[in-house]
């Protein structure tokens, strides 16, 4: 793997996560439990799509084949997507969506704090920009965890169940792959291992404050760094890419 290939794949990872999560969150549009929450989730979806655009645009430049961010989003196959599995899981119920938001947003806050010091100026710039937005995402998910966790027996049980189901997808966030090794050496990417303790500390504190038990799992899901996904990603892409596949380069 050359440095250019490493950077390209790393940027796809940074772009695919918000692209797929943003797509998932947009499924809440008009279905939020209250109007304000509908707006909140779709606002967060928009932040994600915006970040995906920025990273995929840069990925296309690095690839150097004259593609655009849209080409990478709409004309790539499932096995070339590198988003973490947790981002592609169905939205589930509201507690499940909130639990996923917390697990991802806390990670992203640490990751972008780190990447805002990247030796790559473009990555550092997008990271610094995203960090401001992600802080709101953390606050949003955390406040809902408190309310659901300490709410009714029903809301508490649903949130607990969501964390129990999602916990095994958190290990993958920290997996270091070929591209990480190359890019960490140059100070482009951060060492994900160094974020792990902080991450679980931060999440556990919020779960404790929400009366939620820390799930115990003996297995962590893996695959996305190799482009191996759950059955759900194909369905997302079928919907998201349909128009550009059926009518290539169609414009409004």
């Amino acid at each position: 793997m050359t440095k250019q290939q490493a950077l390209y794949k790393y940027l796809l990872r940074l772009g695919d996560n918000p692209l797929i999560l943003g797509h998932r969150l947009s499924e809440w549009c008009s279905r939020g439990p209250i109007l304000e929450e509908d707006l909140a989730l779709t606002n967060i979806a928009l932040d994600n799509i915006g970040r995906a655009q920025a990273f995929l645009k840069y990925a296309a430049e690095v690839e150097g084949l004259g593609k655009t961010a849209d080409d990478l989003a709409y004309k790539r196959d499932e096995r070339s997507f590198y988003n973490n599995l947790i981002a592609e899981l169905p939205i589930g119920d509201f507690a499940y969506t909130i639990a996923r938001q917390l697990l991802i947003a806390v990670f992203e806050q640490l990751q972008f704090t780190d990447l805002s010091k990247s030796s790559n100026e473009t990555i550092a710039g997008i990271a610094a920009k995203s960090l401001k937005e992600v802080r709101y995402h953390v606050a949003h998910a955390r406040d809902w965890c408190y309310r659901l966790g300490k709410g009714t027996e029903e809301s508490h049980n649903r949130l607990q169940r969501a964390f129990n189901e999602l916990w095994m997808y958190t290990g993958e966030l920290f997996e270091m792959y070929d591209e990480d090794v190359i890019l960490v050496f140059d100070g482009v990417a951060g060492d994900l291992n160094t974020l792990k303790i902080q991450y679980y500390d931060a999440v556990q504190k919020i779960l404790n404050d929400s009366n939620i038990q820390i799930p115990v799992v003996d297995y962590m899901q893996t695959g996305s760094r190799k482009g191996i996904h759950t059955e759900y990603l194909g369905h997302i892409l079928a919907e998201m890419q349909y128009l550009q596949r059926a009518y290539p380069d169609a414009t409004w």
């Binding site: 304000e36 929450e37 707006l39 909140a40 606002n43 932040d47 937005e133 709101y136 606050a139 949003h140």
Partner: peptide, 26 residues
């Protein structure tokens, strides 16, 4: 009322005196 208002850059607030909702530029 909500950290997320009519656009991404605004939050939704309510005035407890005049009771009107309003946007706050975050």
């Amino acid at each position: 009322i909500s950290h997320f208002g009519s656009t991404a850059c605004k939050a939704l607030y309510k005035c407890n005196v005049c009771k009107e909702p309003f946007d706050y530029f975050k």
